[in-house]
Write a protein that binds this DNA or RNA. Sequence first.
DNA 1: TTGAAAGCGCTAACAT
DNA 2: ATGTTAGCGCTTTCAA
Lengths: 366, 366
Amino acid sequence: MDGSEWRAAHTQSNAGSWMVKATLGFMNRRPTLRDVASAAGVHPATASRALNPGTRDLVNARTAERVLRTAQSLGYRPNPQARSLKTARSATVGLVIPDLTNPLFPPIARGVEDVLSRDGYSAWIVNTDNDEAREAAAVESLRDRNVDGFIFATAKLQHPITTQIAAQDTPVVLVNRRTGKGDIPSVTPDDAAGVTLAMRHLVELGHRKIVHLAGPQTLSTGVNRLRAYQHALADHGLEYLPERVVVCDAFTEEAGSKALGSLLDSGVEFTAVLAGNDLLAVGCYDALEERGLSCPDDVSVVGFNDTQFMDKLRPPLTTVHIPHYDIGAEAARLLLEELHSPGRHPRSVLLPLSLIVRQSTAPPAR
Amino acid sequence: MDGSEWRAAHTQSNAGSWMVKATLGFMNRRPTLRDVASAAGVHPATASRALNPGTRDLVNARTAERVLRTAQSLGYRPNPQARSLKTARSATVGLVIPDLTNPLFPPIARGVEDVLSRDGYSAWIVNTDNDEAREAAAVESLRDRNVDGFIFATAKLQHPITTQIAAQDTPVVLVNRRTGKGDIPSVTPDDAAGVTLAMRHLVELGHRKIVHLAGPQTLSTGVNRLRAYQHALADHGLEYLPERVVVCDAFTEEAGSKALGSLLDSGVEFTAVLAGNDLLAVGCYDALEERGLSCPDDVSVVGFNDTQFMDKLRPPLTTVHIPHYDIGAEAARLLLEELHSPGRHPRSVLLPLSLIVRQSTAPPAR
DNA sequence: TTGAAAGCGCTAACAT
DNA sequence: ATGTTAGCGCTTTCAA
């Protein structure tokens, strides 16, 4: 049977329709399948078959038609819990997000939802607040609710939870970040390519002393961007100096401010900063301002992600643009594939990105 | 029985625990209540009573203890769908949001989730994309899933959907916006007070010609802030000129840019803008920049909401700060009250706010 | 092509 | 204090 029809069958809104009946006194509860069946003069099993596109052709066309019309006129809507109890599926997907207030994630969530809903699925969004215990609890709760698959935006290089779930034949797709082994399908920006673009831009402006605020080295984004920074230095014939890298313990404004602050105060020489992401870059702005320094006059800054408002900052942030919405959409597509034909062709996708040059980068003063 | 205990009972994470059993070959499916019961040597009904804090005292203390331990050791987790099917409750609340990429809403959602989860409830977040049809579909889908209540961040002055749902004795709380009749509990910022603060600030700086970019007049926030603008003018002995107001059709950057653009191009004189919210204010920045004008040198701008990054704009935006997280948290509290004791004391809450003065406001040039 | 019957996992009224 | 029974609303064998 065609799963997508099965799910899409009752997705259309009959909003308020049974309420009309209720108000008119025909019925004071939601109609059930039995109600439809008896109103149509058939057995509930027949009504069920008629109502589900996948089994519809097991029933006489005229009967099916009659059942459909009856259901429509009663404003019947199937009870997903009952269906799920019976079938052990739920047409629902868990979307696990580390922090919804990070502007990177809402557009990704939108992409996920749009693609899923086209296929009759919905997303259950949970926030883990970057906390492993909360994540474990949230995931258990989603499992309890019989979600058919997961999309994780919380992957770490070592992330037992995704491994466990994937091992249980529950479809999983990672988004934005990957795990270390790379054995789980994922949709991420091409971190290395992004850093390459950013570094070339800085070098072309004339920068030779470029520091990197690296993200947590427990995350693929943190590690990949750091490595790409090192490679870019080599490619441009520049020396890699360990003191020019600070590893931040979180992708937050505060961590960025602290990291750049420590560099500025340490006497390490540099004219440009490659920040691990936009929030770290915003933290750089804070650190510079606190010390009366100017961006880009004293220091150039490049971010990563091109999140909302980065074009409105002072100064507007030069950053690597990633296709947020598409990342989510593509992740949902991979998951749907996996749901429809398990194990067919798992794969990981790197999405292309581009450098957006704004006013936070300029040639070095000297 | 104590509902909160009932729900909280199995909220703790046993992550992976039954998986261990499965791996060890004791069982290859999730243990059910029957499994627990038979392992503990009692009838499923007894196990159920023992497992639910609210009915626990109906059963022998030692038996209860044994059932609990058995459940724990098997890694038993109740199936919420089965429970919901039986009880017609779900310990779940629908959170209806117009647009998750508007930075106003994620912190509100966090507040909602935190308070709900403390009481064993979870939130189903749905995005309506400001579209009535999508909203209707989403709400129907939540109803299908037996949510116990709703929190709407999408209220319009005329908003049949909330009225309908509230009329069916489903608890509803509005957040950020209210409906026209004001008969549904709500938690909103004190729009009028906020505008009063903002206007006083502008007047004290010396502004006399202040325009207002009003939000949609279908929304309480749009209407309340416009009215408060008019009252503030009167309070300060300033004349209200209709041409100094532009009503925007959405709270978006684009609408703000268009609105201020039309004012600038129309020749209407003004030295300051009271924007209906931060996104409209950001739109003002765009319009000013396009015309080579400077904020605050040529025009002062005040926003509303103090959303993320408004302190990092160029120039940093003077805006009315509202307690985002608390708004969500308080809404969840009201809903929980309503859930626990329906019809006890419905009420609406206005949360206090404060003006954050930054660099987008300055005395007028002349 | 349709109906009968069973059961997903749980709770609650009733009986003991 | 515990067991019996029924049923929430649905799907899916199996039988006719």
